[in-house]
Amino acid sequence: MSSASTTRTIKFVSKAGTYAAVIMCPDGDIYQEWEGSTSQVTGIYPNFEVTKPKLYFVCTSSRVAEGVATPDAINFYFNGTLIQWNGDTSTGTFAGLFKKIAPAGDNLYYGIQIVKNIAQAAGFAPAVIKMVATVSYGTQTDQIEASYNIPIQQATGNGIRVTIVSPDGKNFVINDKGGSCQLKAMAYQKGTELTANLSYVWEQMQASGWVVLTGKTTQTITVQDTDINSYGEFRVTVNRGSGASTEELGKDIQGVMDASDPLQIDPHPSPEDEAITEDTSGNGTVTYTPVVVKRGTSTKALDTTFYFVVKDAVGNYLNPGSMGTDKATETVTRAQCVQAGGDVSITITSKD
């Protein structure tokens, strides 16, 4: 018997699938850091009682012509425990920590809002919010889930964080042909926004890897539907100072979903849970054999091969020797997860 084990979930960049679900945060990456000791916390940031971040469950389907699938119902879990509700306010173990969000007006999505600090409720350790939705199509009902990891740790170093937020309220989703959405880079130090003497470098993940976007040097950029195919990834680097005194404050990556795109990629992962265990007695690989389908059907739309880019959390390549070669399948390995130190993502781009 192993003395310790852990499971690392591969968060692949799904450009489609029968259903593709992702949790989007318009407020940028959610995290909490605390100062002091667990028995006497002297400071915590960001203060969720002030920022009140939101998480939205965005689900697209290759069987839904309009792209976005609205669940019939949804359950929320915090570190594996079902959140109970009285109206739209959490009760029980997590009383008052969360608010439930339902589609209304311009908002198309179910979601959850964190209204109080969660570090103590999470045992001063990383937390996972999971959403499990019931989605119906004709007489068929599916359970679709997505998870969002929230780093929670004791504050160390200078406390600088870089994140990408959604300034236009579209949650990084393009819903209409000819539509667009915006990305805005933010830098914080111990929860306080940094604004002085900052510069920005924006990149887009393409079949060949990260490509610098010429002329995109402002804090906010606009992504048009013609800039991506179904799903696109963007990375920003925030620097401070100029010339020899320039210092990099950090990077962040954000995905943009185009729910109006008529063609989607069904990634066909095996195993379907896309999980690799650190324990060598468990599963050690995930293989993707994607196909391109037309939205509204599950039928192959064209014969093509694919480019696969496997990368770590900050976008460093884990398969540099093969990512420029088009092929039919790609296998993500335990060794790549170990090299990345955790979660691994894979971007799949069709050649044709």
Rank of each mutant, 00 (worst) to 15 (best):
M1E: 11
S3G: 14
T7W: 04
R8I: 14
I10E: 01
K11A: 08
S14G: 15
V22Y: 06
I23M: 06
M24Y: 11
M24S: 07
C25P: 12
I30A: 08
G36W: 03
T38Y: 00
T51K: 12
F57Y: 05
V58T: 07
V58Q: 06
R63G: 07
A65H: 06
V68K: 12
P71N: 11
I74W: 01
N75V: 00
N79C: 04
I83P: 14
I83S: 12
Q84H: 07
W85A: 02
T89E: 12
T91K: 13
G96V: 05
L97R: 03
L97A: 05
K99P: 00
A102R: 07
P103D: 05
Y109N: 04
G111N: 03
I114N: 02
I114Q: 08
V115Y: 02
V115T: 14
A121H: 03
A122V: 05
A122G: 13
F124T: 11
P126H: 02
A127M: 04
K130G: 07
A133V: 02
A133K: 05
A133Q: 05
V135E: 00
S136Q: 11
S136T: 14
G138S: 06
T139G: 05
E145V: 00
A146R: 00
I152N: 06
I152W: 02
A155I: 01
V162K: 00
T163S: 14
P167E: 01
N175W: 00
D176T: 15
S180M: 07
Q189I: 01
Q189F: 00
T192I: 13
L194N: 04
T195L: 11
A196F: 12
L198H: 02
Y200E: 11
W202T: 06
Q204F: 01
Q206N: 04
T214I: 02
T226Q: 05
N229Q: 15
S230T: 09
S230W: 03
F234G: 10
V236R: 03
V236N: 08
V238E: 10
R240L: 01
G241M: 11
T246Q: 14
E248Q: 15
G250E: 11
K251V: 13
A259N: 03
D261G: 08
D261N: 15
I265V: 14
P267K: 04
H268F: 01
A275Y: 05
E278Q: 08
T280E: 14
G282A: 13
T287P: 03
V291N: 06
V292K: 04
T299A: 14
T299Y: 03
A313F: 06
A313L: 04
V314P: 10
Y317H: 07
L318I: 08
N319R: 07
N319H: 10
P320Y: 02
G321W: 02
T325M: 07
A328N: 03
T331V: 13
Q336D: 01
C337A: 11
G341E: 11
G341S: 09
S350R: 15
K351R: 13
